[in-house]
């Protein structure tokens, strides 16, 4: 079991309020991702759950039990750090077995568990190596192995993939997701990368300046962003926003439309513009169009098309997919 409940948690560092007031309910077995720009408080929130920082106010409960005043060693959680934080003087075997040793587990049973974890993570051949002799991906897996051996109530991941190169990142993303499907243990995962959030999460918490902007499934966030911040943060390329007259037409302070919800034509449409840069990804092409009175807008088109930089084009948004926001940025 591993449900995590935050009740009015807040955190102040030396007079500076990092987390004003957060309440969350993470269900047992759920994969929840905290996402937001750097400095939004997502890592702090994770460290509060871990017990590596303490709350200034509010309560944290694990399975309904208040653990606010318990130290990290007594919460029964496991954490994977951005730097992996492997013990450099221990072999892979000792690294993975360390939590079991700390729990005074019987040696034979611990050995068995370490071997099992190593097999799952393809580390069997490396058990007697020191961390410095491993590649980045292998180190990452050792860190995960260390987390899974003692069957924690929940896993906490603090930007675990940001030190890996792009190709490896995609692989590890899939491995962690599969691991979650096997273990069905609660996972809380912090990232600044909305693609990781969208692809891995059951539910996403979007954080901004220590506030929860929205908490929902990836598709809820995509389809019905609660406000302009979430709308802009979730989705790639970013949503286009229009203000002023273009927005007034829809009775809103501003309107947003995603690049994939704009039709482009040479002849006619709602907005006229000129193609600036075309980014060819093969499967898709992103056209950056200079629209008069609305600045640079992004349009997603099929991979092979005939638009070239400098072309005069017309853009037409899908009327069913226009997001309207009021003056405070809230969705209408």
């Amino acid at each position: 079991m591993g449900s995590i409940t935050l009740e009015h948690v807040n955190k102040t560092f030396g007079g500076h309020q990092v987390i004003p007031d957060v309440s969350l309910e993470i269900k047992d077995g759920e994969f929840v991702v905290f996402v937001g720009p750097s400095g939004c408080g997502k890592s702090t929130l994770l460290r509060l759950i871990a017990g590596l920082e303490d709350t200034t106010g509010g309560h944290i409960k694990l399975d309904g039990v208040d653990v606010t005043d318990k130290g990290p060693a007594h919460r029964g959680l496991a954490m994977v750090f951005q730097s992996y934080a492997l013990y450099p003087h221990m072999t892979v075997r000792q690294n993975i077995g360390f939590p079991l040793k700390m729990a005074n587990m019987d040696k034979a049973a611990a050995e068995q568990k370490v071997n099992d974890a190593a097999r799952v993570l393809n580390l069997t051949d490396y058990l007697d190596r020191k961390p410095r002799m491993l590649s980045g991906g292998q180190r990452q897996r050792v860190a995960i192995g260390r987390a899974i051996v003692r069957q924690p109530k929940a896993f906490l991941f603090d930007e675990p993939l940001s030190n890996l190169d792009a190709a490896l990142r995609v692989n590890m993303r899939i491995e962690i997701t599969e691991l979650h499907q096997q273990l069905k243990t609660t996972m809380v995962y912090v990232t600044h990368d909305q693609v990781e959030a969208m692809t891995m999460a059951d539910r996403i918490v979007v954080l901004n300046a220590g506030r929860v902007e929205q908490f929902g499934t990836p598709l809820e966030l995509y389809k019905a962003p609660a406000n302009k911040f979430v709308a802009g943060f979730i989705g790639s390329p970013k949503m286009n926003f229009f203000e002023g007259a273009a927005a007034g037409k829809y009775q809103a302070a501003s309107v947003g439309v995603r690049p994939e919800h704009i039709r482009i034509s040479r002849d006619a449409g709602d907005w006229q513009g000129r193609v600036g840069v075309a980014e060819h990804l093969g499967s898709d092409t992103f056209l950056h169009v200079h629209v008069e009175g609305a600045g640079l807008q992004t349009v997603r088109t099929e991979g092979e098309n005939s638009f070239n930089p400098g072309d005069e084009v017309w853009l037409t948004p899908d009327p069913a997919r226009i997001y309207r926001f009021d003056g405070a940025g809230l969705a209408l």
Partner: peptide, 15 residues
Amino acid sequence: IPVDILEAARMDGAT
């Protein structure tokens, strides 16, 4: 010594 590693030990149940 990176403090991360000591924090990892705390998470792993080390007093």
